[in-house]
Design a protein around this nucleic acid. Structure first.
Length: 274
DNA sequence: CAAAGAACCTGGCGGC
DNA sequence: TGCCGCCAGGTTCTTT
C-alpha cells in the first residue's frame, strides 16, 4: 500500500512526536513482523533507547536511535502506523502487530491485515551497504533527466516495470508508476530503452511533480492506508488513470484501459499515452 | 546478469 | 447463504 508519499506523510507526522523520546516498552503481538529475529534480540536493542530522528529511504521508515542503530519499519501492502494518546486498551486489537510505548505516555501502534509488514534493527556498520541496494531517491536534486536516461539505458523491459524496481529508483509503487506515466503521456508497455530524450525529460519531471503533489495531499487512500492520525489521504481524488478502468480520460474522454504489466494491474489512457 | 513468475498472507467482491 | 476464483498499495526467492 504505502509508497513514497504515504511513508513520507507518516514520517512528517511522527518526527515531532518521537524526536527526543525514549522507548520505554515494546510488545509484539505477532512475531512474524520481526522474523527472523527473536523477541529477545529485538527488544534488547530498542527498549530504553532514545529516538533522535525519523527518516525515510524509499518506502522504508527509519527510526534513528541514539545508539547508532536504526529501527527500520516497512509497511508493505496493508501496514498502518497510528499515534495513540489514549490508554492502549482502547486500541483495536485486530491485526495489531507491534506496539512502542514512549516516555511521554504516548504510543505508536503498527497494524497490518496481511502480515507482510516488517520491523528490524539495522546496525550502524551495516546501514550504508543496506541502503546501497536501493536506487536513487526520485525527489533528490541528483535525480534528473540525465540520471534517468542512464537508468533506462539498455534495459529492454516495459517502462512501468522499471519504475517499480526499487533497485533502480526507490519509492515508486503501482499507484505512482501509473500516475507518473499518465502525466508524462507515455504508454506503460513501452520498452524503457525506447524513450527519446524529450520523453525522458517529461517522465523525470512527471515523477517529481506527481510525488510532490501526493505528499501535499497526504498520500492516496484506496483501501487501508491512513495517516498516523487515522485520516485518509486525498491524492486519490486527483487520480488521472489509476483504478479508473472504463472511466473517461479527463483530457480526451477516451475510456481508461486496464491491462497487466509485469503481473500488476496497470491503467492508462490509450489516446494520451503513446 | 536481466527479466519473469511464484510465494508470502488476509480479506473483500463478483459470479454462480 | 455458500463456495470459488480473482484481486489488492510490496518484496524476495526461484526459475528461465
Amino acid at each position: 500500500m504505502p509508497e513514497l508519499p504515504e511513508v513520507e506523510t507518516i514520517r512528517r507526522q511522527l518526527e515531532p512526536n518521537l524526536q527526543g523520546r525514549t522507548i520505554v516498552d515494546v510488545s509484539v503481538p505477532d512475531r512474524l513482523i520481526i522474523a527472523p529475529a527473536t523477541l529477545k534480540e529485538f527488544v534488547k536493542d530498542i527498549i530504553g533507547k532514545k529516538l533522535i530522528s525519523v527518516g525515510r529511504r524509499g518506502k522504508y521508515l527509519l527510526l534513528q536511535l541514539e545508539s547508532g542503530q536504526v529501527l527500520v519499519l516497512h509497511l508493505r501492502m496493508t501496514g498502518r502506523l497510528t499515534q495513540v494518546t489514549e490508554p492502549i486498551s482502547s486500541v483495536d486489537r485486530r491485526h495489531l502487530r507491534l506496539i512502542l510505548k514512549l516516555d511521554d505516555g504516548n504510543t505508536v501502534v503498527f497494524h497490518d491485515m496481511r502480515r507482510f509488514g516488517k520491523a528490524f534493527i539495522l546496525a550502524a556498520e551495516h546501514a550504508t551497504a543496506y541502503w546501497q541496494r536501493l536506487g536513487p531517491e526520485p525527489l533528490d536534486r541528483s535525480f534528473n533527466k540525465a540520471r534517468l536516461k542512464q537508468i533506462l539505458k539498455a534495459r529492454n523491459r516495459p517502462i512501468k516495470s522499471l519504475l517499480l524496481d526499487q533497485q533502480l529508483i526507490a519509492g515508486i509503487g503501482n499507484i505512482y508508476a501509473d500516475e507518473s506515466l499518465a502525466r508524462a503521456g507515455i504508454n506503460p508497455l513501452r520498452s524503457a530503452d525506447s524513450l527519446n530524450d524529450e520523453e525522458i525529460k517529461r517522465l523525470a519531471g512527471a515523477i517529481k511533480l506527481t510525488l510532490r503533489r501526493a505528499i501535499l495531499l497526504e498520500g492516496s487512500s484506496i483501501d487501508t492506508y491512513r495517516t498516523t492520525r487515522g485520516n485518509k489521504g486525498r491524492f486519490q481524488e486527483t487520480f488521472r488513470v489509476h483504478r479508473r478502468g472504463g472511466e473517461p480520460c479527463h483530457s480526451c474522454g477516451s475510456l481508461i484501459k486496464k491491462i497487466k504489466v509485469g503481473g500488476r494491474g496497470t491503467y492508462f489512457c490509450p489516446h494520451c499515452q503513446k
